[in-house]
Computed example of a mutant assay.
Amino acid sequence: MPRPASEDKAASIADASAKNWVDRFAPAPLLPYLRLARADRPVGFFLLGLPCFWGVAFGGLSTGAPYPDPYLLLLFAIGAIAMRAAGCIYNDIVDRDIDAQVMRTRSRPLPSGQVTTAAAVVFMLALCASGSAVLLSLNSFSVLLGLGVIPIVGLYPFVKRISYWPQAVLGLASNWGALVGWAAVLGSLGAAPALLYAGAVAWTIGYDTIYAHQDREDDELIGMKSTALRFGASTKAWLTIFYGVAWLAMVGSGLLAGAGIVFVIGMSFAVAQLGWQVATLDIDDADNCLTRFRSNRDFGVIVFVAAAADMTLASLA
């Protein structure tokens, strides 16, 4: 049964949906751990998992497959759930003292004391083991490629202490699955996956800049850096550049992989979604920023559906 509305209210996470399934249904002993794993905020799973799906779909386009490999999609979905959770826990461990100083993050399980650091480390290692099992199910090239992201993931939470571009490092880390997804299909890389990856990195810089505007004032006070602070009032112009680069690179990647008119039509809807984000963004309204950040799940789904539909219709021609 759903938990009474008043229960655990003080411990709820600021940017989680008020009706998320974790706060409503999770047993009390598991609640802090599910929050630590961001199970109450599933959009991050999509933002990590969808680039993997793109890689599988674009790789399938290049082989003339009628649809993206469902077995690979399942593996990457499981891996994205595990590794997104592990990555968030790692970031929270590194940032626990900083998070305690930021209004939006001080209620998270580590800075609020709901979960000890030792327990968080054990949980993170268990999730990493699950993600490793998924990776080892792929071909040997993909396994080696997947391991290559570890130094980038390790670096990410420290970048905001020294640079205004942590969003770029996040992009390098969170979109690595686009390369691994392609490699899982073909056992190699090439120009198309490289272009897809570059576009995905630009996309992440855009959406995470929007997200970072929620913490702009707190970050400035405690000395943390972000593209939100770097771009400031010029954010919309910068977003137009990064989203434009992202869309052009993804379209170019799809065409190099063998996509046709169906994919291009689908990508016209994708660019309209990005345009809506920029046109309606209010960087001084945290709720507005959070809504537009979350909407990038829709963008990612559109790109995947465009590639998958092109594959299927081409196979029927």
Rank of each mutant, 00 (worst) to 15 (best):
L135W: 05
C52Q: 10
P66S: 12
A178N: 03
V134H: 10
L229P: 01
F231W: 14
R24Y: 05
I302H: 07
L313M: 10
L144I: 15
R104C: 08
T235V: 15
V153R: 00
A80W: 11
K236D: 13
S137Q: 09
M250F: 03
Q277A: 05
L73Y: 07
T63D: 14
A37H: 11
E220F: 03
G258Q: 07
G59Q: 00
C52K: 04
A18G: 14
I152V: 15
S226K: 13
L61W: 05
H213K: 07
D215H: 14
Y243H: 12
L72V: 10
L195N: 00
G171A: 09
S295R: 10
L110I: 09
S112L: 07
F269V: 05
F242S: 01
L34E: 13
K160R: 10
P111A: 11
T105R: 03
L36M: 06
G232E: 13
A228S: 06
W54Y: 11
A28N: 08
V153M: 05
I162W: 11
D8Q: 11
V185G: 01
A200D: 10
A39N: 12
M103Q: 14
L256S: 05
V122T: 11
G206D: 05
I98A: 14
F25E: 11
I210H: 00
A28M: 08
L138K: 02
A192W: 02
D284W: 04
L110P: 05
E7P: 00
F58H: 07
W165R: 14
M83D: 02
L61A: 13
L147Q: 09
C128N: 09
G258I: 06
D287S: 06
T209Q: 03
I150Q: 05
S234Y: 08
A28F: 02
D15W: 09
R108G: 06
V115P: 12
G64N: 12
D310Q: 08
G79F: 06
L195G: 01
C128F: 08
R96E: 10
L50M: 13
D287L: 11
K225N: 13
L290Y: 05
P29M: 06
V180M: 13
A228C: 04
G87V: 02
G131P: 02
I210K: 00
W276F: 11
H213I: 10
M124F: 06
A119V: 04
I152C: 12
A184K: 13
F46V: 01
T63I: 12
D218W: 15
Y207S: 00
W182E: 05
A86W: 10
R35Q: 14
V143I: 15
W203M: 08
L239M: 06
P166L: 04
I283D: 00
G232R: 11
V278A: 03
M83Y: 03
A317H: 10
G59Y: 01
V153W: 01
P66V: 12
Y67K: 09
W238M: 15
E220M: 10
Q273F: 04
S315Q: 07
V251Q: 07
L221F: 12
L127K: 02
D97V: 07
R161V: 08
T117E: 14
G181A: 11
K19D: 15
L73D: 08
